[in-house]
Computed example of a mutant assay.
Amino acid sequence: MSISMRNVAWCAGSTMIIDGVSLDVAPGKTLGLLGPNGSGKSSLLRLICRLRQVKSGVIRLGESNISTMARREIAQRIALVEQQATTDADISVKDVVRLGRTPHRGALSPWDRTDEDAVNAALEQVGMAAKALQLWRTLSGGERQRTHIARALAQTPTELLLDEPTNHLDIQHQLELLDLVTTLPITSVIALHDLNLAAMFCDSLAILHGGRVVAAGPPEAVLTEELVLDVFGVRAHIEKSAVHGRHYIQYLTR
C-alpha cells in the first residue's frame, strides 16, 4: 500500500478527535474523505504527513512507519494543500509555486533546470502559467487555490493530500481540478464536502463521523440513502448515472 493506517488515534487535550482509524490507499488511487464538519477529516490529513503526532496506532508510507522517517524525507514524498493556506507577502504566483521545491534543495543549493521545469509544469497543469508573474495579492480566491495546488505539484510528490481543494472554485474549475488530481500518476487523499464530486472522481471513499470510520469502500457501496441520512442528516435518493456510471445523489427537502 502507498498509505496505510492501523488503529490511529489522536486527541486534542482530553477530546478524542481521531478514534481508531484503519484505512489503506493503494498506489496511484484516490481516496475521498467525507464527513460532517468536525468529523476529523482535516486532522487525519495532518496526521498522515506528521504535522501532528498520533496518540496511538501506526501510519505507514509504503513499508516505512512515518514516526521513524525524517521530516525532510516525508516532505519530499508528501505534499499537503491546506484549506486556509495563504500568505501576506507581496510576491508573485511563480514565487509561491517555487516554495514547493524547498524539500528537494539544500540551504546552499543553486536553483537548477530540474527546479525550473517542475515549477513551470505545475503552473501549466493548473492553468496558471499565464499569471506566473502576477502578484499574489491581486488573485481571486479560486486563483489562489490553484496556485497552492501548483506549489504542491512542484514538490513532485508521490502522495498528495488535499483539504477541501474545491473551496472558492466555480463548478467548471471544481471539475477541472478534480479531473486533474485524479488522473495524476500519484496517490491522493482528498477531504471533500460534496458527495457527488466524491462519487464521480474518487476510487474509494471513507466516511468519518465522530472521528471514526463508519463506512469505507467503493463509492457505489458506501453512499447509500441510509448512510446519508444517518451521518449527514439529509434524506436523499441515489441513482446510477447513465453518463459516467457512478452513483449520484438527489437531496430531498421533504
Rank of each mutant, 00 (worst) to 15 (best):
G13P: 09
D112H: 10
I149V: 14
R246G: 04
L61P: 01
L223V: 05
H209W: 12
F201S: 06
T182E: 08
A118T: 07
I91M: 14
R105V: 07
P27G: 08
N37I: 02
A150L: 09
A12W: 12
D88Y: 11
K131C: 07
L169S: 10
E143R: 03
G106E: 08
V25P: 02
G217T: 10
H148S: 01
M16V: 09
K41Y: 02
G233D: 10
I91A: 13
P185R: 04
E116G: 11
V126K: 03
V243E: 15
L80H: 03
V222S: 00
E176K: 02
V25L: 12
L133V: 07
S140G: 13
P110C: 03
R72L: 13
I18P: 00
E159D: 15
N167G: 02
D115H: 07
V189W: 02
G217L: 11
G245L: 07
E143N: 07
H209Q: 14
S64A: 14
I3Q: 02
A199Y: 03
G141F: 08
A236S: 15
V214T: 10
L51T: 00
K94A: 11
G211P: 06
S67Q: 13
S64E: 15
I17P: 01
D163Q: 06
T183Q: 12
M69F: 07
G142L: 04
I186A: 10
P157E: 11
G100I: 05
Q84I: 04
S92G: 10
T156Q: 15
A221S: 15
G245T: 05
R151N: 06
H244G: 10
S188R: 07
V214N: 05
L229N: 10
L47P: 01
P110A: 07
A242E: 15
L33T: 01
H148D: 02
A26S: 14
E239S: 12
A121C: 12
R71S: 15
A132E: 06
G142H: 04
H247T: 11
V96G: 00
T114A: 11
E73G: 12
T15L: 09
A118W: 06
I3R: 02
Q84N: 15
H104Y: 11
H209I: 04
A122Y: 07
R254L: 06
S43N: 04
G35E: 09
N37T: 04
A242M: 11
Q84V: 06
V234I: 11
P36I: 05
K55E: 12
T182S: 08
L139P: 03
A242Q: 12
Q155A: 11
K131Q: 14
L80Y: 13
C11T: 08
G142T: 03
D19F: 05
V181Y: 02
S56A: 14
A198G: 14
Q83E: 15
Q172F: 03
I18H: 01
V97W: 03
N120G: 06
D112T: 07
A216P: 01
N167K: 02
S39N: 04
A206T: 05
G20K: 04
V231P: 02
